[in-house]
């Protein structure tokens, strides 16, 4: 909300206001602490949840903010993971450095695929994203010297974080490390999306011709956003490789791309909170339902999706915001 009142902005507005970003970090850390203390036996699952959340957030950057339809997002996640696996096996074992390796590999994959995908629109764009995803999947299977083929890469053993915190059997270090990375990435992206660049992306999504008519070069912006999205997905892939020690073909699979899209739609496209909510709700629901009913859990997940799409078509985050606003109005009434 750029302009909320007709009055000139007070001087305090000139200062950098970290409010939204700080709130983002606080909420993620608070949720993370709940996870740490309430489900101490599920930290490996929660760590995996965080890596997938990063994938869903990265998808939101192109699909939600730029209107690019894609079903190949896992490719960038996988490229990040494989890059990190190879780097670690080659002797670069510092986890923070490995994060940067994953980020750079993901960004490169994002720029390359974005340069092609964003030239198209609608269904051709979607099909192209699937094709690129399948291509990466096929390469991962064939180039077994780099990827271990269908056996995957294993034996990835990063050194302790900052030389202090070794990765333990209970995933405590892995979980806290992932949580901190998620909080940082999330805060940076919140900032990014409130920037003029972020606003222009939303403008391009709304009407690309209008954006051109105000002098914006649309194509380079979309490619840059794809690169950013790839960087975030690559960080997710890097975390997955660092925290599990293995990278398999599933990390570049079509199923993973499709699931990420489902989670995003579930939570709500076009807001980072929506992406985070979708990733959380979907995976937690899946986890518990699969544990309690191993035979029918897929149908339960399907039912949940149908219910949410019917009752909150714009996603959980938006639905919750509407509900909250209604409750507040009712509460304020005499």
């Amino acid at each position: 909300m750029t302009i909320a009142s007709a009055r000139p902005a007070p001087a305090s507005r000139l200062k950098v206001r970290p409010a939204a970003e700080a709130r983002g970090v606080l909420v993620i850390i608070a949720l993370g602490l709940v996870g740490y203390f309430v489900f101490p036996d599920d930290l490996a699952f929660l760590t995996r949840l965080i890596t997938i959340a990063l994938l869903v957030i990265s998808l939101d950057l192109v699909t939600g903010y730029c209107g690019v339809a894609t079903l190949g997002q896992a490719a960038m996640f996988g490229v990040g993971a494989y890059a990190v696996g190879n780097a670690c096996l080659a002797g670069l074992t510092d986890p923070v450095m490995l994060l940067f390796v994953g980020m750079a590999a993901g960004a490169a994959a994002g720029l390359a695929s974005g340069a092609l995908i964003t030239r198209f629109h609608g269904l051709p764009q979607l099909v192209l994203s699937i094709a690129l995803g399948q291509l990466v999947g096929a390469l991962a299977n064939k180039l077994s010297g780099w990827t271990g083929g269908s056996d995957g890469l294993s034996g990835i053993t990063p050194s302790p974080v900052l030389g202090l915190f070794a990765f333990d059997l209970y995933s405590r270090t892995a979980y806290v490390f992932s949580l901190v990375v998620l909080a940082l990435v999330f805060a940076l992206l919140l900032r990014f999306m409130r920037s003029p660049f972020g606003l222009l992306c939303r403008g391009i999504r709304d009407d690309a011709l209008r954006a051109r008519m105000i002098g914006a070069a649309v194509y380079p912006r979309l490619v840059i956003m794809y690169g950013l999205s790839g960087a975030v997905a690559g960080i997710g892939g890097a975390l997955a490789a660092i925290t599990t020690g293995v990278v398999g073909l599933d990390s570049v699979s079509f199923e993973r791309s499709a699931e990420a899209l489902v989670m995003l739609v579930l939570g709500g496209t076009g807001t980072l909170w929506g992406a985070l909510t979708g990733a959380l709700v979907f995976q937690i629901f899946e986890h518990f339902v699969a544990a309690t009913n191993p035979f029918h859990w897929m149908s339960m997940v399907g039912l949940l999706l149908i219910v949410i799409v019917v009752f909150a078509p714009r996603g959980l985050a938006h639905g919750a915001a509407v509900l909250w606003a209604r409750l507040r109005v009712r509460g304020a009434a005499p």
């Binding site: 750029t2 950098v16 206001r17 409130r194 003029p196 222009l200 105000i214």
Partner: peptide, 23 residues
Amino acid sequence: VSLAVMQRRGLTRRVLSATADMA
């Protein structure tokens, strides 16, 4: 309108300054 103004002033390359802070 602010998007048009920022585009004209060449501000839309900025990625870490919040739109709301541009008085």
